[in-house]
Design a binder for these strands. Sequence first.
DNA 1: GCCAACGTTGGC
DNA 2: GCCAACGTTGGC
Length: 156
Amino acid sequence: MNQNYWLMKVEPEAYSLETWKKEKVTYWDGVRNFMARNFMRDTMKKGDQMFFYYSNSHPSGIVAQGQIVREGYPDFTAFDPQNIHFDPQSDSQNPKWYMVDVQYVKECRPIISLKNLKECKDLKNMMLFRMPRLSVQPVGEKEWKIIQQLGHWINE
DNA sequence: GCCAACGTTGGC
DNA sequence: GCCAACGTTGGC
């Protein structure tokens, strides 16, 4: 089976690493971008690995690693008018947005900051730099391995 | 189907 | 908090 790698962004105020570590598995709701949605709906497979990336943070960067444990299914937060991610164009008969479930694997401490990533010349082709606003994006196997080396990973 | 206006993301 | 980049919307 072909193993894929991903980077998924979250703002720490929206969903923190501490919460993820406690819950172990979370659904990745609220993605409202077509390219990111298509990756989750069509390409992500159970067993794929992902970096958990803090955006809009001080600093921004990779703080943990996880894996996909459930493949794309409708993002039900879009159906709920009370929810901040509500989208009237999406309903359960014809869902517009999708999500996956991700399980916590291990933490990276200290953070691998965006600056660290940019300074690593072997990573200069990362999609992160070319498409800085894409919140769910693939990571190449080579890049994945380099980042594994770059970080200090902690299993708790 | 083009493209200007608008809204959002996210680094700084 | 500013603002550049860029995805999306909507008028035509």
